[in-house]
Design a protein around this nucleic acid. Sequence first.
DNA 1: AATTAATCGAGACGGTACGTCGGGTCTTATG
DNA 2: CATAAGACCCGACGTACCGTCTCGATTAATT
Lengths: 204, 204, 204, 204
Amino acid sequence: MNSDSRTPRPRRGRPRKEGAGEQILEAALEEYAEHGWAGFTMDAVARRAGVGKSTVYLRWRDKDSLLTAAVSARSGYIEAVDTGNFRSDLEALAGNLFRFFLDPIGWASLRITVDAAGSPAALGRFSEAVTGQHSQAAATIVQRAIERRQAPADVPGQTLAQCLYGAVTMQALTLSGDDRRLSDDQIMERVRPVVAFVLAGAGA
Amino acid sequence: MNSDSRTPRPRRGRPRKEGAGEQILEAALEEYAEHGWAGFTMDAVARRAGVGKSTVYLRWRDKDSLLTAAVSARSGYIEAVDTGNFRSDLEALAGNLFRFFLDPIGWASLRITVDAAGSPAALGRFSEAVTGQHSQAAATIVQRAIERRQAPADVPGQTLAQCLYGAVTMQALTLSGDDRRLSDDQIMERVRPVVAFVLAGAGA
Amino acid sequence: MNSDSRTPRPRRGRPRKEGAGEQILEAALEEYAEHGWAGFTMDAVARRAGVGKSTVYLRWRDKDSLLTAAVSARSGYIEAVDTGNFRSDLEALAGNLFRFFLDPIGWASLRITVDAAGSPAALGRFSEAVTGQHSQAAATIVQRAIERRQAPADVPGQTLAQCLYGAVTMQALTLSGDDRRLSDDQIMERVRPVVAFVLAGAGA
Amino acid sequence: MNSDSRTPRPRRGRPRKEGAGEQILEAALEEYAEHGWAGFTMDAVARRAGVGKSTVYLRWRDKDSLLTAAVSARSGYIEAVDTGNFRSDLEALAGNLFRFFLDPIGWASLRITVDAAGSPAALGRFSEAVTGQHSQAAATIVQRAIERRQAPADVPGQTLAQCLYGAVTMQALTLSGDDRRLSDDQIMERVRPVVAFVLAGAGA
DNA sequence: AATTAATCGAGACGGTACGTCGGGTCTTATG
DNA sequence: CATAAGACCCGACGTACCGTCTCGATTAATT
């Protein structure tokens, strides 16, 4: 999908408009955030991006592809913080994920991931791309904890990550509408017991 | 949601066709399973159910309502088994949930739940209805474990449920296409470490 | 093409909106007159007729069909006048035809007829329908003249009609833009020598 | 209309590709003949001519101009034959015209002329260019007939031409599809009565 | 028995978005 | 410079679906 992959572009013909792809993705996200899935139209995206429809369709096969690309471009900011302490690291990670899910675009990322998993390989490896990226962050944190002797060497990192991510997801799932506006404190309040539970499970 | 709930119906006029509602729900699920969300159309549902469109719209407000109703009618078979052992109970529960998610209709249930949480109260309390039902099952199991002294009295039941459900969901999320065909053994193989981790977290 | 042909309509389903066809044809002619061929769009026709696009496409296969139908519905008012005199009859007929051709819609009729003749039977028998109708008028006039002894019995009516119609067409062909605004007097001025020539040819 | 007309071109830069204009015109006619007006696209013309779109647009303002130019380049072979006899001259002229109209490209010439007359001066003086050229041929023939005393001096040459051309056009108009394949004999059979009628009208 | 009213299948309705395609312009790299 | 390639913006095309509506035909409960 739009795999530019550093072509130095010695191509013939008029070159593709620089930055058009980004503008379109940006416009797509804004449209999605404003009108949701049902009110998300290609015409509106093109208009908002100041671009012809053909320019959009030249880059993405259809509506699904565009939305998927737009969302996955924003799914990346879950990183492995390093506070020097296992518990703090996990709390920060879980807090970031929670915040991400409360943002319409972050939540859309989950929605699309779920769609992708159910579809017949249509949306390809989107799920893996996103979840893989996330589990990487968790693995890094666990690794550091082992090195610091804050966790036993045989801690089941993957299961730990699944529980942590899953519990946060479940919590986000029960919030709808205005309930999704939470302060950072409220978020941490909800995150802490989960981290505590998971640490106990890890034997730390 | 079609809450007629045993109206004895002494109404005038032609009575509603017996069983039409069920046929429509059935058709809706089949259509959804075959064509997915994007290819799910009311016309096709009506045609497959051998029913006029008006008959459908007389029972459900719109497409979302129908799909939601269809899915939620199938979401109910996660029950609290009772094997006499905490671990076995949890494994059975998690296994059932996993199986449910690998079925297209069960997975659709999750998808709709995610949609509902993101929409502005549109799909109403669907999320809560479904997740509430599930958490009830978990709570029952935990309660029994406490009574049997297989778990400490202060075990954080809700967090435990979130981790267990979340971890299963995350696992289902990483499977797409043909990977979703798992035998019961394969399912249990994936479920066991999660239950073990969760039991450790619960101090049991 | 829209051949209603007095079906008393025992059909199933919602009946077609009465008069929608006429409204659409009307709108099509107005659009065509205002914007010409290039600016003639189906969307605009539907909007002007106060009708959904589907309603238009349910009645006519595509743009060409609609325009053809619209124009042919207006091609019919060339009738055989009866002044009691051969020359006057022909002058009236030719004058009417000339006026018809100076009107944008009348001219469109010719344009479409020409298209139809060149196309691979696509527009069907449109040419014949229109020209047949016209030649009928001429034949009637000639017949009456023979009965009145104003023309010899063996006058070649068809050739006469071809010459008369053809000459008028040729004259209309050389007029473009504002030159096409002619008064009735100017029209008759141009028509008279043709009729005189044709009468001479007929030996009258 | 591409009026370069013998520029010796001592210009700077890369010279225009020799013969590109002709190739484009050729391609345009072929495309028109194959797909008709509706299926006539600039992209296809450029592709068939093995030329970039800019090369086409460098020479012709737009689609109409190109098609007009292409057709008018082929409209020129109606000439005033000289058989020494008025009737034969007219029959030859009318026969040539008939043949011209039965050819797809010749017919296109008429179609464009009709379009041009109806449009707001868009296609300019195309009509006049073509019809003028033709009426010149007729005038020449009439002039010679007068000199040979085969026609009276006051014969209305223009009206005669209009009738002759018009009648041929009308006949061509009633033929569509396969009916347009006529042998030379069939053509002359249809032409002769018209010439006879016109000669009578001319008092010859 | 006649009336009333809710429901049924069918399918046309006004809208709106889809994804495609063509026109005419523009921007590059290559003669 | 002209050219070929081809991306650009624009907007119409014809299709499909939504949710509504209007039919004629059923089918009870109520008169």
